[in-house]
Design a protein around this nucleic acid. Structure first.
Lengths: 215, 215
DNA sequence: TGTACATCAGTGAACGCGCGTTCACTGATGTAC
DNA sequence: TGTACATCAGTGAACGCGCGTTCACTGATGTAC
């Protein structure tokens, strides 16, 4: 009887196969987009015939859901690694950008056009909260005093989502603003909206982060 | 012989029919997303049978291209109308947000996940430049002096895309930053990433605009 | 160690479906003399 | 005003295609005695 942690050859093969399927799925998303993801095409890539994939995933939707969850997980892990390496908010921003640039399709699977009718499972929202908490802590470490804006007072009254009541509303505000600004630059950059302008998006990104940390 | 501006009944009917097809297409995008847009389904909605649509659009791709171009046009017109009504940068920001919130799918067709393999025609990039020019002019009207950042010097050397050489690099910078920040808030809001937090996204948006205009 | 059985990965055929697009055709509308 | 012709909107059948998913089945791998 297999105990926890010990895996039979069959189990190991299974895990390995699931991983390969996901890998091919990502390749396909890169060329055809998430909506063009086809189980049959993946099966062909893996070297199996169509229905065999149903040994590993109950349906196409389940596969996509796992890919999305993995993307969230990957982002959270990237930020956590940066933090654990002693990075401040700026360092985490760089890590985030590198993560996004490394695989734009993975980025857009999370932050791009929402899939119509798709409902994010609790698992992904939990990871999302985890990420937000890391950002809030990084912002709290900045310790800049500033005058309250209207949105700060709004946050005073709507902060049930925040992890710790001891964090100032201005800190929550800063974390949210960090998030929106970073996404503003990244999503436009990765979607190619800066293509006609010749400037280096990395400098724009850095400038935005600097501005946010200075004031 | 029909002169320019004068249209025969047939022509008028044609234009009207094209408009109705596009309208149904938008409805379908709203429920199934851009990738789920189906010519046959649209035809059914309009009350025609499949192939009839080919009288009005050469292919599915052409229809989508027109929808995208219309979306760009609609946004540019909205901003122009705000400007002509005497709105400053803040007013234009509000107009932009209202435009986006009114039809998120239209917004995402432009600023969402890029369609794999889709190449934006020159017509849309021209409209995009038009929009950017309006923003730059609105930023120039602010006339705030500020110290140059690294990205400002980058822009000094890469500004061929900008409409007028007399505009300061810091103004171009402000226009770009306006664009990225506004998109950061809007794209996260419209994609539902603020759903778990209870605050009013409009206040966050207003705060971002205020910050950008004050400093 | 050998035998009997259970588990499970993968196959191939088949299902119904909807897609974009073509083609030959009908019938109404407009145009020219 | 009437007739002859051209234009063009829309139809219905058909094309080939790939999709997700089911099902009964084969054959290899693991497990129990």
């Amino acid at each position: 009887m297999a105990e926890t942690g010990v895996s039979s050859p069959r189990e190991r093969y299974r895990v390995q196969m699931q991983a390969e399927i996901k890998e091919r799925a990502w390749e396909q998303i890169a060329t055809a987009g998430a909506s063009g993801l086809s189980l049959n095409a993946i099966a062909k890539q893996v070297g199996m015939s169509g229905p065999a994939l149903y040994r590993y995933f109950a349906s196409r939707d389940e596969l996509i859901t796992e890919l999305i969850r993995d993307a969230y997980r990957s982002l959270a892990d990237t930020l956590a690694a940066a933090r654990d390496a002693g990075a401040d908010l700026r360092g985490m921003a760089c890590a985030l950008r590198e993560w996004a640039v490394a695989d734009p399709h993975r980025y857009f699977l999370i932050y791009g056009t929402p899939v119509p009718g798709y409902r994010a499972p609790d698992a992904t929202t939990a990871i999302s909260n985890e990420t937000m908490t890391m950002l809030i802590e990084a912002c709290a470490a900045l310790d800049i005093d500033e005058s309250a804006t209207p949105f700060d007072t709004e946050l005073e009254h709507h902060r049930r989502w925040a992890p710790d009541k001891s964090v100032a509303a201005t800190t929550l505000h800063r974390a949210i603003t960090f998030w929106t600004r970073v996404h503003g630059v990244l999503s436009l950059e990765l979607a190619g909206h800066f293509a006609a302008m010749e400037f280096d998006p990395a400098l724009l990104f850095a400038d935005e982060v600097d501005t946010l940390m200075a004031r």
